[in-house]
Design a binder for these strands. Structure first.
Lengths: 186, 186
DNA sequence: GATTTATGTCAGCCATATTGACATATTTCG
DNA sequence: CGAAATATGTCAATATGGCTGACATAAATC
């Protein structure tokens, strides 16, 4: 009940138009303070669960990101990973080396192109990736269960709409392709 | 059209149960890959807009967070800010000092308790805070406009539900109080 | 007057990111 | 074939933004 009241109150506050005399130019719309701050806190909590597990292993978020995308896209090239993460190969280098050295990720020479080092998770790596994804899924499932059925779809469409329109299709294709790729046993 | 098709395809993929033979234990639910990855990319884009502006000023995300919360909660104590950001005072110190030195934030001695250094944005600071919030609001408004009316409320409830239940009321109170605090002219 | 509180600061460490330059192996193209 | 482009890795230096621990100061509180 407390939640519901607070949420309603918040909605009320955010929807009413400003009557103040702040310096905000009349041309600009009222900032969406509620969504801005909720996104900040929600994202922090969202990555907080994995962070705890990772910290015990001596890993950080960088390791999580690498492990996540390699698990989701087995056989991906190093260049693909750099492109997704939008970091430099020097930054990736250290993190990837640790994951390889500790047997979470392995690199195979490309069959066609032997310059490539295709990336795969080991069983150990998959287990960790699934553990971390499980934590986040638990949070998501709880959230979606709190709201009505059909919320999964709305949430997905909201988050999709928040993406840069320019890169949107690329992201959606990445997600869809990863869903495909992992269906057959490798 | 491309978007809609891809979104529908994505929904289809995510909702169908796994038929693969991966190492995921039967007890665990299927990871919500779509929400996990969309949240990652959406959040990145969301903070990407401010990042560009900040970079030109020689600031980073840390400065943004400080400026944002001081703007939203004028007169807040340093201790309050530390508590919201969940960082140490040493980390805050550097960033805050730069904002104060460059006249984005000012500190006033507390009227009751003269040990306190209450934090306020200057007009310059408010202008920047509003500029950054404006960029994010534009993205949010675009997203909400793409989806139907009433989506603002669903998005807010979804993000609220994603918060740690333990700290949820605290976050909602913070947001609601900030909305109040800035109504009257200071 | 002693203790606690609010804040600031010094010193050093760590993780993760950056740029630029260069090395190696391999593929591709003229 | 040989040159150029590509995929990857690595060395060195630098920046940001976190962290811990120790200590200092001023003011409030007991």
């Amino acid at each position: 009940m407390a939640d519901i009241n607070l949420t309603a109150k918040l909605a009320d506050l955010a929807n009413r138009s400003s009557a103040s005399g702040t310096a905000r130019p009349a041309s600009a719309p009222e900032p969406a303070w509620d969504i801005i701050e909720l996104l900040f806190f929600a994202y922090r909590d969202f990555v907080g669960d994995p962070d705890e597990v990772l910290a015990k292993l001596g890993f950080g978020r960088a390791h999580h990101r690498v492990l996540h995308f390699v698990n989701r896209n087995p056989g991906m090239k190093v260049a693909d990973l750099l492109d997704i993460l939008k970091i430099t190969k020097q930054s990736l280098g250290r993190v990837l080396k640790q994951l390889v050295d500790q047997n979470y990720v392995l690199q195979k020479e490309g069959a066609n192109d032997r310059r490539q080092r295709l990336l795969y998770v080991t069983p150990k790596g998959e287990a960790l990736a699934l553990k971390l994804a499980g934590l986040q899924t638990t949070r998501i499932a709880r959230a979606l269960a709190e709201l009505g059925p059909g919320t999964h779809d709305v949430a997905r469409r909201f988050l999709t709409a928040m993406l840069d329109p320019a890169g949107r299709d690329r992201v959606l294709r990445l997600i869809a392709r990863a869903d495909h790729a992992r269906r057959p046993n490798t």
